[in-house]
Design a protein around this nucleic acid. Structure first.
Length: 296
DNA sequence: CGCCAGGTTAGAG
DNA sequence: CTCTAACATGGC
């Protein structure tokens, strides 16, 4: 086993991100163990298992557990991790104005260093968003767990089992019935399979979408059946890291705003649009910190 | 039992 | 264009 370091910005807290990674006991796509996380990814068709923890300088220490490390492999893992924890975003400007915002002020202080834990895999992000539509999170995690367990590739290492997210090519060939058996609704089953087909046939890809502008990419996503404004913005935030993407229709966001402003009812979409005018350019992070406030 | 959950679609008005 | 029913099932 060999380790290497990934430098992080000052405004980064691995501990805060771990809180997110620990959200559900049903998560199979990574494993947490104390202040450490383990995950498998594919690099050049090989499965790489690595762990991440922090050192005293707040840098990330990455250990590759199942391979001899090469410079190329380190490079690949480094880009993955940088993407995963959104390390390229400079949060200083966000913190500068958030510290003066009545709602965000206390949140950015309490959760300083918390970053968007992204989903580099677009098919995974879309599928997960579809799975999570209109149901509570714990049920959503259970649906994902069954989906990953049933159709994701397994990797075992030292008595532990790790999973890849199911491949679009495989999901594209499934019948809705096989997802209904996992408690998907007919609608969700159809949406996920249709999305998989779009990937498998090359109608959509992360590479292609990354060439488009924010509004163009959103428009393109919404053309897919089952992808509405909420889902499109969700993946633009989690996969493409657009700082101005945020899921306006999100029930959790509504709840968070309601609590923070002490409203007697959920805010209307107009009220939220009005509120978010103040957060222009930082809507994704404003949303992230509001979401975080829900787990108090 | 009722209401809400990290929504979206198709169809009506 | 806006409004609404239907979707399906769990959490509380």
């Amino acid at each position: 086993m060999s380790s290497f370091i990934i430098e992080t910005p000052k405004e980064f807290s691995f501990h805060q991100c771990l809180h997110f990674l620990n959200r559900s006991p049903n998560e199979l796509l990574h494993l947490t163990q104390g202040e450490q996380v383990q995950k498998i990814i594919r690099v050049h068709d090989k499965t790489i298992l690595f762990s991440i923890e922090t050192d005293l300088q707040n840098q990330l220490v990455v250990s590759v557990l199942n391979q001899r490390t090469t410079a190329t492999l380190q490079q690949a893992i480094c880009s993955y991790v940088t993407d995963w924890f959104d390390l390229k975003t400079d949060l200083k400007p966000f913190y500068a104005f958030a510290s003066n915002d009545p709602i965000l002020k206390s949140l950015v202080k309490k959760y300083a260093g918390y970053r968007i834990v992204g989903m580099p895999d677009l098919f995974e992000a879309l599928s997960w968003a579809i799975i999570g539509q209109q149901i509570n999170l714990s049920f959503a995690y259970r649906l994902k767990q069954q989906f990953v367990q049933s159709f994701g590739e397994k990797f075992s290492w030292k008595e532990r089992t790790y999973y890849h997210f199911p491949a679009a090519e495989l999901v594209a060939g499934l019948n809705p019935a096989s997802l209904l058996a996992l408690q998907f609704s007919r609608q969700k089953a159809e949406y996920v399979i249709a999305t998989a087909k779009a990937f498998a046939s090359g109608v959509i890809s992360k590479e292609q979408l990354s060439l488009l502008s924010f509004p163009e990419a959103k428009e393109r996503l919404i053309k897919l059946k089952g992808i509405g404004n909420w889902t499109a913005n969700y993946v633009l935030m989690k996969t493409f890291h657009y700082p101005n993407a945020f899921p306006l229709e999100d029930a959790g966001l509504h709840q968070a705003i309601r609590r923070q402003l002490n409203l007697s009812a959920k805010p209307t979409l107009q009220q939220i649009e009005q509120l978010f005018k103040k957060y222009k350019g930082w809507e994704a992070y404003a949303t992230l910190y509001l979401w975080r406030s829900l787990s108090e």
